[in-house]
Design a protein around this nucleic acid. Sequence first.
DNA 1: GTCTATAGTAGGATAGAC
DNA 2: GTCTATCCTACTATAGAC
Lengths: 195, 195
Amino acid sequence: MARTQGSHSDITGPRIRKAALALFARHGYAAVSMRQIAFEVGVQAGALYNYTPDKQSLLYRLMHEHMQDLLSAYDELEQSADASQALRQFVGFHIRFHLERPDEVFIAYMELRNLTPENFSEIEALRRKYEDTLEAILSRGQEGGVFDIADTKIATLAVIAMLNGVMTWYRAGGRLSLDEVEQVYWDIVRRSVSA
Amino acid sequence: MARTQGSHSDITGPRIRKAALALFARHGYAAVSMRQIAFEVGVQAGALYNYTPDKQSLLYRLMHEHMQDLLSAYDELEQSADASQALRQFVGFHIRFHLERPDEVFIAYMELRNLTPENFSEIEALRRKYEDTLEAILSRGQEGGVFDIADTKIATLAVIAMLNGVMTWYRAGGRLSLDEVEQVYWDIVRRSVSA
DNA sequence: GTCTATAGTAGGATAGAC
DNA sequence: GTCTATCCTACTATAGAC
């Protein structure tokens, strides 16, 4: 990993974020030192400060980019007008998007408390925005008589919590394929909100 | 908080664990120092080592006691022979038990990675044991034709994940009473597994 | 049982050479 | 842009006095 002197401004930045992502996900933000990150990248600790003003900004940027990616990716879907179809779409999207980014997801959830209050507010707002897209689907179906939901706010949180659970156990190449996982979860979600 | 010399062996131990619990839950194990804990208790850092061999043991003990309490409390329930009733019982028990101990629950979930491998294995075994009690209920109902579940293992994890979500938003004195929360979640869980 | 003091280590961040 | 060197702070854990 040792590296002699040289200029690498265009690649070092991304490598730092990649290393930080993996280390934060594995050991937790507080337990990871700037020296560890630098070691993974193959530079000295001081060099990191050419790319981030401090450790906190590194964490914030990782979380912020992840949430932006999530919202952008969802926006790019062609949303079905049919609430039931839209819900199915959401379930599949959520599971696949999150399983493709286990480290980002883990950090986005576990490291919220290590953000400064200002940074926390910004990330939290993005998370709410994402939740709102699901709640909109549930409300639409409820009003159209397709769903029968006692409390759409709780149902929103319940569905997301349930889907997030897949991250704790799913492993590629395991007992179930991704399609099967998606099918099983859709089956559970569909029942839980159906009229 | 400052305290002059004196002997308090019977009360200092519990106070240390109580302080550690609150601090670990709020800031995370890695981010909390022994000095902070000592300050909360009103002793010097060195005095903590009369009660715990090290910081790791303090974390392990908190998590272990929590899991033991959980299993004991569930064992004390008179379990209904009817699978549907048993599931309803489980939902109510899980929600109430966990909402009564937000700090313990938070730590038991978030600090798993800060346990040594040996300690992790022991806590993990207790967690599996708890999950198994729910899976037994679901399997029983499935075999009796009361439930219609594609995959009882996934359903177990999905239900627990969903119920755990309540911890992230429920606040006493909020929009919904505990009874209402329990009712809404039971409604969702019941539908999601019903034949 | 708690104190003060400290050993020994490691942390975030910066300064100046190349 | 990266290096080496370092400031200053903080940490866990221990030793010995009271």
